[in-house]
């Protein structure tokens, strides 16, 4: 671990731990997709995870809310350990928001209903209150006027912003972003990144799998580079981009920064 990261961790040592992964392994059949992952995320930390495709970065964050099951090791989220206990899984999912590459909005519901759904059915909130909260977050992602439309009527960027608002409605303590801009047309990437930067400025704990290196440089406290299921290197963005340690990191950076 580099000195910069040590300092950073020292600074955060007083803060509470949001996510802790200790010795996490996962296999898809014979394929060893996560190898001995150790990761501690403190509250308010913004972490960008990058790496070549198939390196296990999506799987890593999907383990945090149990969309994927880890087979060895320990994952503790907000003080609750992930086990097979469905109640604990649900408790963790209520605290952890997730934004997907393909948005995964519910196409049969309006934008407003998409946002209210979990408030009403998980938080047991009256519809009126839920709609108020939903409108608050739709305003925050700057599309309150689309509330009554269906997702199919929105552009990709708008849909992804709705997806972010939908997660925020549940007031999550941690947000997971799984390549949130990879399915977007280039001109729509900025509007989504702007929303994410706004979130970061408000102190949201974020784990982002992304190839947007500009975003990483701007908002991340720490960049994690994964390859072949391992965390190869983690560092502050400045150090990571200017002074990569491992050869694999250097190769990866040379490939994505070439143009």
């Amino acid at each position: 671990m580099s000195a910069a990261v040590k300092d950073h961790v020292q600074n955060l040592a007083t803060g509470e731990v949001a996510v802790q992964m200790v010795g996490v392994h996962k296999w898809y059949g014979e394929f060893h997709v996560l190898k001995d992952i150790n990761l501690t995320v403190h509250h308010g930390e913004r972490i960008v995870i990058c790496g070549p495709s198939g390196s296990g970065k999506s799987t890593l964050i999907r383990c945090i809310n149990r969309l994927e099951e880890h087979q060895k090791g320990q994952i503790v989220v907000q003080g609750t350990e992930l086990t097979n206990d469905l109640k604990q899984i649900d408790a963790i999912r209520r605290e952890v928001g997730m934004v997907f590459q393909q948005f995964n909005l519910f196409p049969h519901l309006t934008v407003l209903e998409n946002c209210c759904l979990a408030l009403i059915w998980v938080r047991k909130m009256p519809r009126k209150d839920a709609e108020e909260i939903a409108m608050k977050y739709l305003t925050r992602v700057r599309i309150p006027e689309q509330a009554l439309k269906y997702p199919g009527q929105l552009s990709g960027g708008q849909q992804q912003r709705v997806a972010i608002a939908r997660s925020l409605c549940m007031n999550p303590k941690v947000m997971l972003f799984d390549e949130p801009t990879s399915a977007l047309d280039p001109e729509m990437i900025k509007e989504v990144l702007d929303v994410m930067i706004g979130l970061a400025e408000d102190g949201m704990t974020m784990l982002c799998v992304t190839h947007e290196m500009g975003f990483a440089q701007k908002v991340a406290n720490r960049v994690i580079f994964m390859d072949l299921g391992e965390i190869v290197e983690q560092n502050t963005p400045t150090e990571f981009f200017n002074n990569p340690q491992s050869d694999r990191t250097k190769l990866f950076l040379s490939q994505i920064l070439r143009h």
Binding site: D90, R93, Q102, V122
Partner: peptide, 29 residues
Amino acid sequence: PRGQFEAASALGLSYPKSMALIVLPQALK
């Protein structure tokens, strides 16, 4: 798509609720 069920799960909806509110309305349609 699997993502629909995953999104419902990620929001904390239980299996019966994600089926009844998200998956079945679309599938039956």
